[in-house]
């Protein structure tokens, strides 16, 4: 029972991070029908930029409290990721807006590889340990241990998601994003500058990815140039699970995938009689992806594809 609760807690933490990343896939897909496979790399860039900021600043300003450093690192990371996303959209995707779907997909994979290599050149191949800036104190919660960093991750993710829902449903920008998701040409006739809306979607996704990158590296205490790849694929899986293009679906899918993975890691070994170890948790995500694509391609909350006018 204790293991169950513990894995559930871990799953919610992991799931919150997946959800933030999944939102980036879903926002862009909702408007352009484009799967931005380079999105996961922004998580990695966010984590490493934040780490570099912290490493640079902490000897310069030794008196600075850890949370201020963390905040500064996150802010710079978010800015860098936003600029990077704008650049990627402008250079790699916009020229292919009207090309057959396969072209931007292949480009996305190319961008992803380019970003990984660039990061490898800048930050090297090694794993970087992330200094614990925030209180590592742990609390007991229904028989499970949860660290303050984890509480912070879940709370911040919830706050960001609530903010995003507010933005999408209560603001002029959000309304234009939803209109573009339904019919780009008509939105344009209404006076919407579609390119500006697309850029906004990329920027919002990039900021969420940067924050997620800081969260992952804070949670595991590690960062390296390859960390965005698998995480990105899993977050994409989460977006598909929830119904890609659907904001609520990305949140639900992220949370569910995180929980499934954690429980899988805790029980896979017992359930399979030792045949499958906990390291199979990564496979689980892709098993879920295949299952969803076969049985319910529109995902949990997604509408039937083909509704798009």
């Amino acid at each position: 029972m204790d293991i169950f609760i513990q894995q559930l807690v871990n799953g919610v933490v992991l799931g919150s991070i997946y959800a933030l990343v999944a939102l980036g896939y879903t926002l862009v897909y909702g408007i352009l029908g484009l799967i931005n496979f380079a999105h996961g790399e922004l998580v990695m860039v966010g984590a490493l930029v934040a780490l570099s900021v912290v490493r640079t600043l902490s000897p310069l300003l030794p008196g600075l409290p850890g949370w201020v450093l963390a905040l500064l690192g996150t802010a710079v990371a978010a800015g860098v990721c936003a600029l990077l996303a704008i650049l990627i959209e402008r250079v790699a995707y916009r020229p292919l807006r009207h090309a057959p779907r396969l072209a931007p997909l292949i480009t996305a994979i190319g961008v992803s590889i380019a970003l990984q290599n660039l990061a490898m050149v800048i930050w090297g191949r090694q794993y970087h340990s992330v200094p614990p800036l925030l209180p590592a104190a742990s609390h007991q919660f229904a028989g499970a241990a949860i660290t303050e960093v984890q509480i912070l991750i879940v709370a911040l993710a919830a706050l960001l998601m609530a903010g995003l829902i507010g933005l999408v449903h209560r603001t002029r920008l959000g309304r234009a994003m939803r209109a573009c998701a339904e019919n780009i040409q008509v939105a344009e006739l209404m006076g919407v500058n579609v390119n500006a809306i697309v850029v906004a979607a990329f920027v919002i996704g990039a900021v969420l990815a940067a924050v997620a990158g800081v969260m992952v590296s804070a949670n595991y205490g590690l960062a390296h140039y390859h960390m965005g790849f698998l995480l990105g694929l899993k977050a994409f899986t989460a977006a598909v699970l929830g119904g890609i293009g659907n904001v609520g679906g990305a949140m639900l899918g992220g949370l569910l995938l995180g929980i499934m993975e954690s429980l899988g890691a805790g029980y896979l070994e017992d359930l399979s009689g030792g045949f499958l170890g906990s390291h199979y948790q990564d496979v689980l995500a892709f098993f879920v992806l295949i299952l969803v694509l076969v049985s319910r391609p529109s995902g949990l909350l997604g509408e039937r594809v083909g509704q798009r006018a």
Partner: peptide, 19 residues
Amino acid sequence: RGIFGRLTVLENLQMGAYS
């Protein structure tokens, strides 16, 4: 017609006034 089917009637009209 090109109505935004998932937006409300009011939101559609607000989109009309986007400019």
